[in-house]
Write a protein that binds this DNA or RNA. Structure first.
Lengths: 193, 193
DNA sequence: TCCATTTCTTAATCTACATTAATGGTTTTG
DNA sequence: CAAAACCATTAATGTAGATTAAGAAATGGA
């Protein structure tokens, strides 16, 4: 089944599954296509799914009380994305998640997630590693937010996510590194000079 | 064994162990006492341990090229702490971790960590939950760093870590929320007025 | 207990980045 | 294919928070 190729490779990076386990795992997934600008999740909704991106690009962002957006992550193919707090604690979502272009995803529901780790304990290991890496990345972002200037944060972003630079509007990159689009524009013009 | 009470309770929040498993787990731990101002880890060192705080308070911080400190976490009793990137990827530490007062800790080495999850797969589940929660916390911090003013971040800190306020110098709280000690001082004086 | 060191506060000045606004370019969609 | 909607750029002005400096208070080691 072609739709499961990428996710099975993703999992094979950390654990080995036999055919029966692969089939069981795939049977728990729900396939979904998002159109451009369609929302996977909106704030205050319940968040029932942990999602794997097969193709396309999604953006997760927080909207503060003044209407300012802060981009929390860009989810490209081979990435997992959800509002983890809302998913795990069954609380209303804080994040909005929207497709930046037509995107194909695979959804694992909360109940299937729990079933999966119960039935195949190797998946506890898989998600342990996934969350450990997610924690490491978020902590690095905290360090950089606290210790770098806006221009330095932009350089790190360019190095770390070169594919994103091509694919998303600059104003969204600005909202990821924590500056206004106007200021990012001046950062970029000075950079070339 | 009294030294293991707190850590066994910490683990019992998420998984159940029988006596043999408890004994095996405890046999993998190394007890250590840190004096006030003693370092558990310094940047560029190898990071061999994942540490559980039994008593006292530790601080993990990043030192940038200009000598500015950014506090990454305060580790109180019942908390796990390490430089997770250095620990997991066997890379030189980015963080410094220092005791703010005399502190008693239990250390789990990388090799014992790997042994533990292999011998008792329930610990994959335990650490999966620990890292999932750590990721959720770090992501919330990213959201707050991007969307709140310094004064608002201080209010969140006061609500979330009331015990820390009493125990650590204000300049270190300033370096956690990402402002200078001078500016935190003015935030606090306006707050009371 | 005392001196040294560190920490906190206040205030003047400075700067990185925000805001506002105007212009032109680009993408989207009827 | 044209109007609408969105996006990037530039520049003037505004502000949250940094820097510098200096004195007061708290802390800690001999």
């Amino acid at each position: 089944m072609e739709v499961y190729d990428l996710i099975l490779k993703n999992i094979a990076k950390h654990i080995s599954l036999n055919e029966a386990e692969k089939n069981y795992f795939c049977s728990l997934l729900e396939s979904k296509i998002l159109l451009s600008k369609q929302f996977l999740l909106k704030e205050n909704q319940a968040c029932h799914y942990f999602c794997f991106v097969n193709s396309g690009t999604l953006r997760a962002y927080f909207l503060n009380k003044d209407g300012k957006e802060s981009t929390i992550m860009f989810a490209m193919p081979d990435w997992w994305v959800t509002d983890m707090h809302a998913f795990e604690k069954a609380k209303p979502a804080m994040l909005n998640i929207v497709a930046l272009e037509q995107s194909k995803i695979l959804q694992l529901s909360k109940s299937n997630f729990e079933l999966l780790v119960k039935e195949i304990p190797k998946f506890e290991r898989f998600f342990r590693i996934i969350f450990q890496n997610a924690y490491i990345r978020e902590q690095l972002r905290t360090i950089q937010n606290l210790s770098l200037t806006a221009a330095e944060r932009y350089e790190k972003f360019v190095l770390k996510y070169p594919a994103v630079i091509q694919q998303v509007p600059q104003k969204q990159i600005a909202s990821y590194i924590g500056v206004t689009p106007e200021f990012l524009s001046t950062i970029r013009s000075k950079r070339k000079a």
